[in-house]
Amino acid sequence: MVPLIIWLLPSPSRSPHSSGPFSVQLVYTTHIQECNIYSEVQEPKKTPHPPKTSAAAQLDELMAHLCEMQTQVAMKEDASKKHIANKQDPKASLDSMLGGLEQDLQDLGVAAVPKGHCASCQKPIAGKVIHALGRAWHPEHFVCTHCKEEIGSSPFFERSGLAYCSKDYHHLFSPRCAYCAAPILDRVLTAMNQTWHPEHFFCSHCGEVFGAEGFHEKDKKPYCRKDFLAMFSPKCGGCNRPVLENYLSAMDTVWHPECFVCGDCFSSFSSGSFFELDGRPYCELHYHRRRGTLCHGCGQPITGRCISAMGHKFHPEHFVCAFCLTQLSKGIFREQDDKTYCQPCFTKLFPL
């Protein structure tokens, strides 16, 4: 095989001493002269190895670039996974951050001593801690049993070992007012087997809040003393006013002691006995007077045998002759000027 030699010849139209670009002319030949270009063969000088510009250097550069790209891709994947994990489980992210913080503190030589284990998540508490119900809690884990809202340092109520916020505790467990049905948050009044706000326990008739005198109950409703007595207490048989304190019971009704007197003379019944006529009490005298059973002779009530004559009634012993006072026992008498006479006296006094 004949080697191909390329000669670079200056263009004939250009001076060898001129500067600037020049054109070249390619001459193809298969003739090889015996002599070399140089007058003598020079020994190659020993020079240091040039920087790698070969295919190996390019391969090394390419491999380094690929490793860098792989590292960047891995970092992006890790960041994406952490973002997804944080988005899906914030609690896990927070735990991871707290764990990392604890590790960083330990790396710095600061001992992060746990403050107990959270009663909710059972994990160590390294930061803020809430002590309640005899246990320790992460602040974000100490929540209301009902609404699950964080209680934190706010007041809370305990029931059966569980914590409740004020709103839910009163809604679930506080007694309710029998008038407005709302939970009773502060003072509670108990009456008639029910609970009340003190300002809501008042008279059903006049609306006044009860004072020291208390209340009276009728048909499951409370009344003040005045209205209860006016509306429901028995009325006195004498004055028809309510009987408030002491009373007498007689003739199927009640009476003020001062009202239970004779209907005519208004005298009290000191002996304890009275006579009833037309729903009114009377003493014996006025009872018989109203009934017409007083003796016309003595003016006293007739309680036994009675003699009726001349439109009057008499005790038998008081039906006598007006002149001789002899008892007209047989019922035979003569009358003159509304007086009774025996037959002999009448004949003497009023001869024909």
Rank of each mutant, 00 (worst) to 15 (best):
P3F: 09
S11K: 11
G20M: 03
T30C: 08
H31V: 10
N36R: 13
S39A: 11
P44C: 11
H49L: 14
P50H: 13
A56R: 11
E61D: 12
M63F: 07
L66I: 15
L66G: 02
E68D: 07
T71F: 06
V73Y: 10
A74E: 15
K76L: 15
K82I: 11
N86W: 09
A92H: 11
D104S: 13
D107V: 10
L108Q: 12
G109Q: 09
V110T: 09
A111T: 15
C118V: 05
V129A: 10
V129C: 14
I130V: 08
W137C: 01
H146W: 04
E149Y: 00
S166D: 13
H170N: 11
H170L: 10
H170K: 04
L172S: 00
C180V: 06
E199H: 14
F202C: 05
S204I: 01
G207Y: 09
H216R: 14
K218E: 14
K221Y: 02
Y223N: 04
C224W: 05
D227V: 08
M231P: 01
F232P: 09
S233R: 02
G237Y: 03
P242M: 08
V243D: 00
L244K: 08
N246V: 06
S249H: 14
V254Y: 06
W255S: 05
C259M: 04
C259P: 11
S267C: 07
S267R: 12
S271N: 13
L277E: 13
G279W: 13
P281W: 08
C283V: 12
H286P: 02
Y287R: 07
R290S: 14
G292Q: 05
H296I: 00
G299Y: 09
P301F: 01
M310I: 13
M310Y: 02
H312R: 13
F314W: 15
E317P: 00
T326V: 08
I332L: 05
Q336R: 15
Y341N: 02
Q343V: 14
P344M: 00
P344T: 13
C345V: 05
